[in-house]
Structures are given as structure tokens and as C-alpha cells.
Design a protein around this nucleic acid. Sequence first.
DNA 1: TACGTTAGCGTATGTTATACGCAAGTCGCG
DNA 2: CGCGACTTGCGTATAACATACGCTAACGTA
Lengths: 228, 228
Amino acid sequence: MPSNRRVRSAASSRSRRVPRNTLSRDRIVEAALALLDEDGFEAVTMPSLAKRLEVGTMSLYRHVADKDDLVDAVAERVLSGVAVPDGDADDWEGRVVGYLRALRDAALAHPALSRILSDRGLTVGPVFEQLEAVHAVLRAAGFSDLGAVRTFYTLLTYVFGFIVWELPRVHQQPAVAYTAAWNDALDQLDPTDYPSLHALRRQLGTTASSEQFEYGLQHLVSSLRPPG
Amino acid sequence: MPSNRRVRSAASSRSRRVPRNTLSRDRIVEAALALLDEDGFEAVTMPSLAKRLEVGTMSLYRHVADKDDLVDAVAERVLSGVAVPDGDADDWEGRVVGYLRALRDAALAHPALSRILSDRGLTVGPVFEQLEAVHAVLRAAGFSDLGAVRTFYTLLTYVFGFIVWELPRVHQQPAVAYTAAWNDALDQLDPTDYPSLHALRRQLGTTASSEQFEYGLQHLVSSLRPPG
DNA sequence: TACGTTAGCGTATGTTATACGCAAGTCGCG
DNA sequence: CGCGACTTGCGTATAACATACGCTAACGTA
């Protein structure tokens, strides 16, 4: 249960004051993201983050309520780059799929984000905006309110599942080496107990790929057409 | 990156010896599961677990390599109850859907499992067996090897995403109160910034439901028919 | 009966998040 | 130009955690 507190930005007393110096919430979030990308989620600790910023540990707490708050902020920063692409008004499929791809791409750019996303789901600030936009697109395409909700929720579920699954298995660039730990597990499957899976371990190893992503996505989208 | 070490069961030196007393790996896993269900994931610590078993903390390490190892074992125990249901040979949809439902039900029985699953994905012992069986069903239904893999991977992605999303939001019985923290977040959406989402917060609140689960699942399955 | 093996455990270590309060710098107002 | 309030950065302290290490005592076997 991630505590949904929004204590947030202590920088909101009325007498507006220019921060004296180097440290700021943004700089902290940025550093946390860098740390996350370089050394993974468990490397993001308050001490290590402070060390990286050449600051005392407790200084961070002036700009961040909590570690939870910090992690939220990191997720927000990453996902705030995503948007529903412009496009033909009646090409709802293209626009929605474009959005979902963008979501995946954003996540792939920061593999260690997986842990964060799976804790919080996609209950992250910017995603709400995006869903608002998606909803509009679907309504315009002829979906009912409820139909639109069901539809994008279904799609989001798929994409979310795909992301959370694949991210821990990505170590390099998006197009390169998925596979790895997952492959190892597959290779160690006993051929007698798991004949099919063992024989197919090559295929299974590449399931976390753009190709598979598109496969499921296309099937799903095509089955979710508006009633009209 | 959950370290994939399988150090496992130290109880494998050749001179078979009857454990002298009360403690055993099974009892530990059982207690951990109970603790998980009662007080959530973060309550499962080695000290608290030991206290519950009325045992010293370090005693646990005689039966469990790691905390990671323990958590793996818990996941295995929960998922080992799931199976592909018997059924008509050519009713692949029914059988596969039945399996996926069973998977969700198993997870719903232990809401706090979410954290564990999202870390490990479904790379948990018993799931491999189950996939082996699912693969057989799909092959028998006319899917190619690759088609079968793509198909169940797609389905699994959806189910996995759904589960990981909904579990943290379940506090009571399966049929009763999903919604809660997620609803709170929705209620706090600014009506001017998020007109549609705000208006639809009732609908959105109940998206984590069996109905929505089936909705997506049925659409997905129907779009994934075998080539023949 | 004696010995090797192993279960249970006590202690110690290193790491974490974070409460609390001090000190020094900075701004706005007089 | 100066003063006082508010902030920022930080040092110290606490409590919880995972876990290395090594002791002790019970047990089965020879």
C-alpha cells in the first residue's frame, strides 16, 4: 500500500523567497533519476543521493517530504514527457496506439523505473492528463463514456503489464538485449519436465520485444472497436 | 534485479537426518504467508517472522538462504495451487480463460502478493509448469508453436498487468471493496483540469473488477484465434 | 559410549529512513 | 543601512532491518 500522501513541496509559504543556493527539488529529482539509471532502484538511497549531490543527507528533506515523495517525483518526471500524439481526428487507433507506444518508450528509457511503476501503478500525475486526452479521442471516435473507459483501461492494463514485465529484463538499449535473466531461467528448465517450453526457449526469450508488444496491441485494438 | 540465485534448501546433504523439532522451511513459508495476508508485505521482516514462530531471528536462516529465497518460496506456494482446468479438448478458449481466471483468483486471495509478483514477474516455479500445459492446449487447438507463444504471452501480459494493478487496491473480499486509495486519487482530481475523468470517477473506481477483467479478457481472446 | 552433524540462537556490523534542533545566510521592511 | 524572521543546510541520534559469524546443545550413528 503506497501511502498516498501528497505532503509535497514544502516551498509554499507565502513570502516568496529565492532559494539561496545549489540544492533544489528539481536538482534532487534529476540526480535521483541519474542514479536510478546508472545503478538501479536499490541504489537510490537518501545517503547515496546526498553524496552524489555533495550534500548532507538531511538536506534533502528540506525539498522532499519523504523518500516516497521523491520516488513519486521521479516517476512524474519520467512520465510527463509522454503525450497523446496529434493526428487525424478519426484515426483513434493510430493516436491511442501512438500514445501507448510513447508510454512504453518512456519507460524503456529508464528500465529501473519498473519497481516504481509496479508499486504505484500508473497513478502518477501526468498520466491522468494523458488519460483525459485519450478519453476525448475515444469519445470523438464514437465510444460511449463507459465504453471509452473500459477500452483505455483494457489497453492500459496490457501496456502496463508488458512494461512491468519487460523492464527488469532490459539491460541495454531498447532494440538490443532484452533477454538475460529471463533467458537464464528458461535455459535451466528441465527438458523432460518442460519439453515445449524448453524447445521454445528461443522464442520465449524474445517475447519481451517490440514485435510482441505490437502483436498484442494490434490484436487488442482491433477487438475494441466502437459500437457505431 | 532480483538475484536469480537458487541457493535453496540447505537440507540436501546426503546423510538424511530427521529434523529435531518444530522449525522447517514449510512452517516458515506458511507463517510468512500468514503474516503477509494479515499485515502486508512490509510487515514480513525476518525479526517479525521469527517472533511469530517464537524462534530466534537467525534460526530462520537455517532453512532459508535469504530473504529473497523466502519470498520466492512464498510466491511459489501461492501459485502452485493454480492449474489449467480439464475440459473439452477443442474448447481452448474456455480452458485457457479458466486458467487465467484461476491465476487471478490465487492472487486475489493474497493481495499483498502484488509487490512480490511485480518484482519477479511470473517467473515463478509453478507457472512454468502451467505454461507448459497451456502451450499444449493451444497447440492442440491449431496454433503454431510461435503462434501459441505469442498468444499466451499476450494473454499473460494482460492478466499480469491487471493483477498487479488491482491487487494493491483490494482490501476486502474479492467481490466487495476494490477501490479505495485509487478512488481517493480520482476524487481529488481537479474537475476543471480533468473534466471527463472527474465525471467518470465512479466508473473508473470500479475498473478493477471482475467485470472489467472479463471484458478485456474476452476481447483479447476473441482476437487471438488460431490461423486454421 | 563417543563423535560428527546440525538446529537454534546471541551478538555484532553495516545500512537504511528519518526525527529534531542548531547555525548561518538571505530577504524584506523599516 | 540594519534588523529580525524565515529558510536552508546539516550534525547527531534513533530505531529497524538483513545478515555474517561462531557458539552450544541435542541427536543419530558407529
